[in-house]
């Protein structure tokens, strides 16, 4: 196989047949166009409405308050993320390679400040300014203790309305419920998107905040969209999704990746390797002999082989 065969290299000088490429394309274009039009008319396409912070605050206020306390305590996904958002962690590693860390903090996000303290300046709640002043005047150790203690109490009580008021939580409960009110009144969505320009096209902050809660996560799980549910391939509703991502999605379902903290980068690296294999497939021993070993080509060229007694 490695030796190029003359006949493969040469311009074909054997028998030919008329073949109308342009007509073939035009017919194919019309057929595909009509097919796509018909399928679209019958099945339409999915359009699950976007989730807002207001919706989250109204439908799952307990989760909203717990997540807000978590942002202040530095325990949420984005508060503990690392690059490219902050330096709270080093990020994932591929063996000794700290690629995520090396890429650096290019999209600075400080959840306690950006998601909570800054938007609270716009709160209409009369108790909020004093709470904010107390928060901003405290040491970071004190802030952390208040927020952590309140988070723990929330975890035990299950709902912020069942947590008994205590000075041990400092201004954190007032800040959290103040932010809840801000979100319920539909102000927070706008405040988080307009930090760069009042004419937004970047949803990094509201989406990081939303994804920190369990409300949004549960919505995805219900639609079978989680990474460990082969969610990468799936679409909302009963529509086909990106089934071409099967080889990417596969690795998230199996060990050692399934339980690896560094699964994302490990699978990314593996995929790069597999893509190289795909690109260079004709050069890979054995694989490049498969077409000979499993002779589908006898079917494809059956008329040719028959006419030439091969």
């Amino acid at each position: 196989m490695s030796k190029e065969r003359n006949v493969d290299l040469a311009k074909w000088s054997g028998p030919k047949r008329p073949y109308d490429l342009v007509k073939e394309f035009v017919i194919a274009f019309l057929v595909v166009g009509l097919l796509v039009g018909a399928i679209s008319a019958i099945f339409s396409s999915p359009d699950e409405p976007a989730v807002t912070l207001q919706q989250w605050a109204n439908q799952a206020p307990a989760d909203f308050v717990a997540t807000t306390a978590g942002e202040l305590a530095g325990t949420t996904i984005s508060a503990a993320y690392g690059p490219p958002y902050n330096n709270a962690a080093e990020g994932l590693k591929l063996g000794p390679l700290k690629i995520q860390k090396w890429a650096g903090v290019t999209i600075p996000v400080n959840p306690a400040v950006d998601f909570v303290a800054t938007p609270l300046k716009f709160s209409k709640d009369p108790s909020v300014p004093a709470a904010l002043a107390q928060w901003n005047g405290a040491s970071s150790d004190q802030q952390l203790k208040w927020a952590t203690d309140y988070s723990t109490a929330l975890g035990k009580a299950g709902d912020y309305t069942k947590v008994t008021a205590s000075d041990a939580y400092g201004p954190v409960p007032t800040m959290a419920t103040g932010l809840l009110a801000l979100a319920q009144s539909d102000v927070l969505d706008g405040l988080l998107t307009t930090t760069v320009t009042p004419y937004p096209s970047d949803f990094t902050k509201p989406m990081l905040f939303l994804a920190d809660g369990t409300y949004f996560d549960d919505l995805g799980a219900k639609q079978h969209l989680h990474g460990d549910q082969w969610g990468m391939m799936n679409e909302t509703g009963s529509y086909p999704g990106q089934s071409w991502l099967w080889l990417f999605s596969l690795w998230y379902q199996v060990e050692p990746f399934k339980s690896s903290e560094n699964a994302d980068i490990q699978i990314f690296a593996l995929l790069m390797l597999l893509n190289l294999g795909f690109i260079f497939m004709p050069k890979i021993p054995f694989i490049n002999r498969l077409p000979r070993l499993i002779p589908f080509h006898r079917l494809i060229w059956r008329r040719y082989y028959k006419e030439n007694n091969l």
Binding site: A41, I42, F43, S44, H224, E235, T236, G237, S238
Partner: peptide, 15 residues
């Protein structure tokens, strides 16, 4: 167009 649609906006079944 939307009127003609066979709705696929319900949870999918899984194999």
């Amino acid at each position: 167009m939307v009127l003609l649609a066979i709705s696929l906006n319900h949870p999918a079944h899984f194999f």
